[in-house]
Write a protein that binds this DNA or RNA. Structure first.
Length: 260
DNA sequence: ATGTCGTAACGTTTACGA
């Protein structure tokens, strides 16, 4: 089962490019972030025509996450628990049956957090604390769990072309990295790093200042796998090439193959 | 060159978030 995560940066602007990528890469499940629309205005039919079930957790103008699946999405749950006041749409989870295993699949759009310090950074760290709590609950099931999405965290300096440019940024501050590691240390495997080592692998290139042309990138989209999911992983990669197409997102898809 | 996008709105331009 091929599962991909893709921050599309606006469904209205990205529908055509997104469908081209889906037709080529044929993922079984797609996690989307920054759909930037409400549930009502999400163009679900263009995916249903291609055989996907569609689940959305949207919000007008900003944020918003979605899940597409060739197999039915069961036990859908939207919104990260832990703060009833939080109205930002950043979390969706559902169960998809493989041939042998049920997979609990979570899609997330972790807050950017800039400028730091400040209230937005406080929100990021608080959100990561809630994420850790939910991750611990999911881990306790001892079943295959995947949490994929835009984590807005550069885990290490090797995950940026110019680490010095991000030193004061919410994506790379020591506290952000430590909060990310605290989730990993519960017992998750970071899928990409379990398969590929070394620098030069990125999932985001800013629209500004010719970042793509200079290959000035960062790796901020990740899959975290429970031990039972990590056992089933057979491959993981980044669809880098689509960044050079017309009307690209500033992110590219990250995907994993799970022998479920 | 604080350089680009996407979205919303009292829109033909500005504000915000990234």
């Amino acid at each position: 089962m091929k599962i991909a995560t893709f921050n599309i940066n606006g469904i209205k602007a990205r529908a055509a490019a997104l469908l081209d990528w889906i037709d080529e890469s044929a993922p079984d499940v797609v996690l989307m972030q920054e759909i930037k629309c409400t549930d009502e205005s999400f163009p679900g039919a263009i995916f249903e025509e291609r055989g996907y079930s569609v689940a959305t957790h949207g919000q007008k103008g900003f944020n918003g996450v979605a899940m597409l699946s060739k197999r039915p999405i069961e036990d859908l749950r939207c919104g990260l628990p832990g703060d009833a006041e939080d109205e930002q749409a950043r979390w969706i989870e559902g169960t998809v049956m493989g041939n042998r295993h049920a997979l609990r699949i979570c899609g997330l759009y972790l807050p950017n957090g800039n400028p730091a310090p400040g209230p937005k950074y406080d929100y990021k760290l608080a959100w990561m604390k809630r994420l850790r709590a939910r991750a611990a609950e999911l881990l306790a099931s001892e079943e295959p769990v995947l949490m994929g999405g835009d984590y807005n965290v550069i885990p290490q300096d090797e995950d940026a072309t110019r680490p010095e440019a991000w030193r004061e940024d919410a994506l790379a501050l020591p506290e952000s990295r430590a909060a990310f590691r605290r989730i990993l240390h519960l017992g998750f495997t970071e899928a990409f790093r379990a398969r590929v080592q070394g620098p030069g692998h990125y999932t985001f290139w800013d629209y500004q200042a010719g970042a793509w042309n200079r290959n000035d990138g960062i790796r901020i989209d990740h899959f975290l796998l429970s031990p039972q999911a990590a056992d089933l992983m057979t491959d993981c990669g980044i669809d880098k090439a689509i960044r050079s197409r017309d009307k690209p997102s500033d992110h590219v898809p990250l995907w994993i193959e799970i022998d479920a």
